[in-house]
Amino acid sequence: MKKYRVADAAAPFVQYDMIQQHTELPVYAEPRLQLLFGALKSSNYSKEQSELYNVVTALVQLGMDTHDLIDTETGQRTEEQMRSRQLKILAGDYFSARFYQLLAKAGEIELIGLLSKAVADVNRLKVSLYEKVQSATLSAEEYLSSRINLKSEMFKPFQRFFEEPLLSAWNELLHYVSRFEVFYEELKDSLAAGGYARSFAYWSLLGMTTTAEEKTLIKQNNYEHLLEKYNIHHVMLDKLHTAHEAIHRLLEHEHFTELKHELHSLMEEMALKVAKYSMKRVEAQ
């Protein structure tokens, strides 16, 4: 039997030639979506229901993630740059409309309300984070917890779909999967050229560095050597590893045998990611 993939299931609802022609979309929130799908399936929801809930959450999250790609440039843009921006906006709106249409067709009115409220909540968090980033009034821990909350918010409403012990464990599982995703992205970005600007690394260094000269370097995005000096990559890798361990520990619960089975490939993918960055760390030393 073909393995379920959210990208395949959502494809009919995201494809519109204008979108594909003019812009690139972000990736799906795979780890959280795999967690949700596994949790629904292990809670005796039918395959159809599990797929529907997963696809609509994927769509609404993808819509908001697409809107996150809108630039704030105000200068002259080329026609293609304008089209790309315009289609990102409309793609995000289109995915959101499709989420509503799918749930409306299925008569899932309560879930429309729950997920729509979560959309409003996510955007409230985004404005707060954006405001703090702009005014540079943010600690590394605040930045981290905001990013984790932003990732988990759309998935929290599903807690009420589960029974004990998953009911109690859902938010914690979601937190650690989101935390893992955040640190994986942060590590990836911090190794990409210029990717660490306004990242966890940036906010950490800003709180750690002591001299005025170092603070100036950070603001000029010229601080690769400071990442080494303050051991930032090691801290991030350690946090990635800890998040993976925490999920593993939670799944050891005696009633989660089936959930653990459902999440087997997710855990394997996470283990591979930890190993990948551990290797990079060893190579760097």
Binding site: G63, M64, H67, D68, I70, D71, T72, R85, I89, G92, D93, S96, Y100, I109, E110, I112, G113, S116, K117, A118, V119, A120, D121, V122, N123, R124, K126, V127, Y130
Partner: peptide, 20 residues
């Protein structure tokens, strides 16, 4: 632009919360 995107998405979320 970023605030406009978040505001639009927030209003839209509130709209569907009402109709639900």
């Amino acid at each position: 632009n970023r605030i406009a995107m978040y505001t639009g998405d927030y209003i839209h979320g509130q709209a569907l919360t009402q109709i639900a």
